[in-house]
């Protein structure tokens, strides 16, 4: 195959969802979806630059012991790649500069936010302007949520979509910002492609349990201005097939393909059109 879409899923130190994320990439048409342990990247044997689509999967990096993904962000910032002067963070920044795609789900989203990769208004990578903190209820919860998609968002993953239904599974998913300007930029630039909403997926909602964590503006995910970097708390890789849907036994008309797959299909289509 001359031109193949190559996805990578970083694993290790507490990631949990790498297998299903890789499966989602393949189901969406990626030719390669490698699960790569972070030690392989640090050793330099496997290089990020050989891929188009970087997936940061859900889990509990280092147990989320210093706050979700904090220790994980610290590792990427300081861990040196053998035989190079770069840290993994430098390599990710180069990956982004090359116009490639990064999607973080749940712990991966927390990681992107805490590394300052999202929303990174004006391309200001590195400065953390928002965060994800403890759910208002103070507890981990596994629950399916309705999401309204902002069709004006530059997010390439949600292009053409109106609504989604996906599970959240987290204890630290409440989106907050450092100051009101950050929020107004997110709003005016449409950097929040997905919002927790009512069952009709019409309006963002603040009420529990529809909004499971009390996120500001009911924000469930954030992208950067290019739309190529995207992170969200709900798990798209958890709804790839109809049997993932919690009510598939009572909704015979559900399509075979799950809604989460659409995000990966959009990513693969973007790579085929723009990067190959």
């Amino acid at each position: 195959m001359a031109k193949s879409v190559r996805a990578i899923v970083i694993a290790g130190n507490g990631t949990n969802c790498e297998r299903e994320v890789a499966f989602a990439c393949l189901s969406a048409g990626a030719n390669v979806a490698d699960i790569v342990h972070i030690a392989e990247l640090i050793s330099g044997r496997i290089q990020l630059k050989d891929y188009h689509f970087l997936n940061l999967a859900g889990g509990f990096l280092d147990g989320d012991d210093l706050g979700s993904a904090k220790a994980g962000a610290n590792r990427l910032t300081y861990a040196k790649v053998h035989g190079s002067h770069n840290t993994l963070r430098n390599e990710i920044e180069q990956f982004i500069a090359d116009g490639k795609l990064v999607m973080g789900v749940c712990n991966g989203f927390q990681l992107m936010v805490k590394m300052g990769l999202l929303p990174a208004v004006g391309g200001s990578f590195g400065e953390q302007t928002s965060s994800l903190t403890f759910n208002d209820r103070g507890r981990f919860e596994d629950r399916w949520c309705y999401l309204k998609v902002d069709s004006d968002s530059p997010c390439i993953y949600t292009k053409g979509l109106e609504s989604l239904y996906l599970p959240v599974r987290h204890g630290e998913g409440k989106f907050v910002v450092d100051r009101t300007e950050t929020l107004s930029q997110i709003r005016s630039l449409h950097l929040a492609p997905v919002h927790y909403s009512n069952a009709e997926c019409q309006e963002p909602v603040m009420e529990y349990p529809l909004n499971p964590n009390g996120s500001l503006d009911a924000i469930a995910g954030i992208c950067d201005e290019t739309g190529r970097l995207f992170g969200l708390m709900p798990h798209p890789e958890a709804y790839i097939h109809r049997t993932h849907h919690p009510r598939w036994t009572r909704e015979p008309d559900l399509p075979e393909e799950g809604m989460g797959l659409w995000l990966y299909q959009n990513a693969v289509a973007f790579i085929r059109n723009e990067l190959l």
């Binding site: 297998r19 299903e20 596994d142 629950r143 890789e237 958890a238 993932h244 919690p246 009510r247």
Partner: peptide
């Protein structure tokens, strides 16, 4: 209690611990 456990990680849970019209 059930909601405090991740019952769907690994994306293989077909009949979940909570089912029905309102999950």
């Amino acid at each position: 209690v059930v909601r405090r456990y991740d019952h769907e990680v690994q994306a293989g849970t077909v009949i979940k611990p909570l089912v029905g019209i309102a999950n």
